[in-house]
């Protein structure tokens, strides 16, 4: 193993972990909604696309950054609440998989609407952070990756704090725990749902901007949802911690696999490798890393 280039290995690993943070960020959007309403919101990717596209179209029309951010956030909140009212509420008490299919339909609607309104061309998005390599003791790390990771980590911390320390956050956790009990003690579910959808909209916006700056704001942004799914499978659909750890794990193994074993497969394995990792893991532990194990009741 004397030939092994440890510096390069660390570089790949750190790169993987940093992109893993971005996966975590997308995955958290799912977890928020899953925990409160039991829906795997496939439209999260479409929301991300919609947010990024709206933001970039606004700035291209001369709207200043902060204002564009605020407007987009407001739009995302409205969309989130509208989804909750018009799609999910009529489907209350339907099997979870029905709700999932509804969000699949929803993702088509949102993707179509986003591109119908703002066009299908690729927009560049410049957040003012240059993507320069950054030398840390011989290991080169992308400056943008670090920025994105810091923003994502800040986002996660802020959300955790919000749900831990505010009244509505406590309500969220009560609903996540037991919807009926929460209802019985007088928590106003519509408020909590609205908040959660707003939070998911914010996550979509931030993730959309970070990913958009990375790969350009275009249709394929919505496919990032496909990157988040193995993360969720690995971490458990209902665990924020799981989304974080799962994202890091997937990010790291994916990059390492691509660099070290990808050549044996002829490259391009990042499309499915994460799924195989998540599946292999699931076969050992069906409820994911941190998901709740449910006792079968018959």
């Amino acid at each position: 193993m004397s030939d092994f280039d440890w510096l390069f290995f660390i570089e790949v690993l750190v790169g993987g972990l940093l992109s893993g943070v971005m996966y975590s960020l997308v995955a958290i959007g799912f977890v928020l909604i899953y925990k409160t309403s039991g829906v795997l919101n496939f439209a999260q990717g479409a929301m991300l696309l919609f947010a990024a596209l709206t933001f970039v179209s606004l700035t291209e029309r001369g709207v200043p950054f902060a204002l564009a951010f605020a407007i987009t956030f407001a739009i995302m909140v409205v969309i989130g609440i509208a989804i909750e009212r018009t799609v999910l509420r009529p489907l209350t008490n339907k099997p979870p998989i029905t709700l999932f299919m509804a969000t699949l339909g929803l993702s088509y609607v949102i993707e179509g609407a986003a591109q119908l309104i703002w066009g299908t061309q690729v927009h560049g998005l410049d957040l003012g952070i240059e993507d320069l390599p950054f030398d840390v003791g011989g290991v080169f790390i992308s400056q943008f990756d670090i920025f994105a990771a810091v923003v994502a980590a800040g986002m996660v911390a802020a959300l955790s704090a919000f749900f831990r320390y505010t009244r509505i956050g406590l309500g969220f956790r009560a609903v996540a725990d037991d919807q009926f009990a929460a209802l019985a003690i007088g928590l106003r579910l519509p408020w909590i749902w609205a908040t959660v959808w707003a939070a998911a909209g914010l996550v979509a916006l931030v993730a959309g901007l970070l990913w958009g700056a990375r790969v350009g704001v275009q249709f394929s942004l919505s496919l990032i949802v496909l990157k988040a799914l193995p993360v969720l499978v690995l971490g458990g659909f209902d665990s924020i911690l799981g989304a974080i750890v799962g994202g890091l794990l997937i990010g790291a193994t994916e990059k390492l696999a691509e660099v070290y074993i990808g050549e044996y497969f002829g490259g391009g394995i990042e499309g499915w490798f994460a799924y195989v990792v998540a599946l292999a893991f699931l076969l050992v532990r069906p409820s994911g890393l941190f998901g709740q194990k449910l006792v079968e009741r018959v």
């Binding site: 799609v87 009529p90 489907l91 339907k94 029905t98 299919m101 509804a102 699949l104 339909g105 929803l106 993702s107 088509y108 609607v109 949102i110 993707e111 179509g112 609407a113 591109q115 119908l116 299908t120």
Partner: peptide, 21 residues
């Protein structure tokens, strides 16, 4: 064709949701 493609997606998605509900 671009508009067609997008409106197709919207109508299809809406149909799915309507049928499910």
């Amino acid at each position: 064709s671009g508009v067609l493609d997008m409106s197709q997606r919207i109508v299809l998605g809406t149909l799915i949701i309507l049928f499910l509900i």
